[in-house]
Simulated scan of single mutants.
Amino acid sequence: MTAVTALSPAAPAPERERTKRRLLDLVKRHGPQTAQDLAARLEISIPAARRHLCDLQEQGLVEARVEKPGGRGRPQHVFALTDRGEAAFPKTYSLLCVDVLRHVQSLYGEGAVLRVLDARNAEIAARLAPELCGSALPERLELLAQRLTEMGFDARLERDPVEPGVWFLVQHNCPNLTVARQYQDLCAAELDLYGALLGVPVVRESRIACGQSTCRYRIGPGSA
């Protein structure tokens, strides 16, 4: 009779996710780590640690590097957080931004915040304008939606089903929500930026900062 080797059951999905989270926490706390170091800290096998690291690499949360320990010795593979992995940890950037704008307003008056935001938009416009210049409106909108999505806005385009030449730019996320709720100048500056970049009338129909599910912009003839 042929012996049958029993296979160890795979760890339940929640347990695997907890292990991955612990692994990310260790890399965040201790910096780039080898698979061997992580396995020892987590008290799991090295192959198991490598499987978790492979999953995290596929998710874009960690990346492999070749480094010399302490700047000398034999090079070894270590795993470090990517920008996306860093973003998985809580940040206080929005609160810091609100504090900075509050101090700007206190020191330089009511219009100072809008001037700061206008300067920021001028910089963004200077960066995007060369890409948008010379193309038809649909192409400009597609490119703008792509760039906004890269900036965290999760932007999508919709055609007006009734009126030809009219589009809707719909943002499903506001990465600046904490700031936008306290400083409406941010949303006003955003609206001005889109109008300047697209060269056509733009009207905002809804706003996440006001409790609605999306920021929705009507773009094209008759939007004024």
Rank of each mutant, 00 (worst) to 15 (best):
A39V: 13
E17V: 02
M1D: 03
A48N: 13
L143T: 15
A48W: 11
R115D: 15
L137A: 08
R102N: 06
Y217L: 12
G73Y: 09
R65V: 01
E131R: 11
A48Q: 14
Q59C: 01
R140K: 15
I219V: 15
I219N: 05
R102T: 10
A112G: 13
N121S: 13
P47R: 12
R120A: 13
A196C: 04
A80W: 06
S135F: 01
F79L: 08
I124K: 15
A48D: 14
D37E: 15
D160A: 12
E17W: 00
G220N: 06
Q182F: 04
A188L: 14
K20E: 12
A80V: 08
E15M: 01
A87L: 09
D37Q: 15
D185Y: 10
G220C: 05
D25V: 06
T178W: 00
A64G: 08
A87V: 04
K68Y: 00
H52M: 06
Q57G: 02
A11L: 13
R181Y: 02
K28L: 12
R74F: 10
C97L: 08
A119F: 10
V116I: 11
A35E: 14
S106N: 14
T5F: 06
Q57D: 02
T2K: 11
L117K: 10
R65I: 02
S106W: 10
T5I: 12
L95H: 00
F79W: 15
V104Q: 12
G165A: 09
G73R: 06
G71W: 00
Q33S: 15
L38A: 14
A196M: 02
I46T: 14
L107E: 15
D185K: 09
A48V: 05
R127K: 07
L7F: 05
T2Y: 09
R65D: 03
C97K: 07
H77S: 11
P69K: 02
T149K: 08
D25Q: 14
T2G: 08
M1Y: 04
K28A: 11
Q105K: 15
T82R: 01
T34R: 09
P175E: 05
K20P: 03
E15D: 03
P12D: 00
Y183E: 09
S94P: 01
E110K: 14
F89E: 01
K68H: 00
E58V: 11
K68E: 03
G71F: 00
L95P: 00
G195N: 06
A13M: 01
G220D: 07
L132D: 01
Q33T: 04
S223K: 09
Q76C: 05
A13G: 04
E63F: 05
D37I: 09
D154P: 01
R74L: 13
D25I: 06
M1Q: 04
A155D: 12
D83P: 10
P47S: 14
T34A: 13
H52Q: 11
A6K: 12
Y108R: 13
H52V: 02
V66S: 07
V4N: 09
Q105A: 15
V170C: 11
P138Q: 09
A145C: 07
Y183T: 07
L53S: 03
L186W: 07
H77K: 13
N173H: 13
R65T: 02
S206N: 08
L96M: 01
P14C: 04
N121W: 08
L177G: 08
L107G: 13
A3W: 03
R120I: 13
V66D: 01
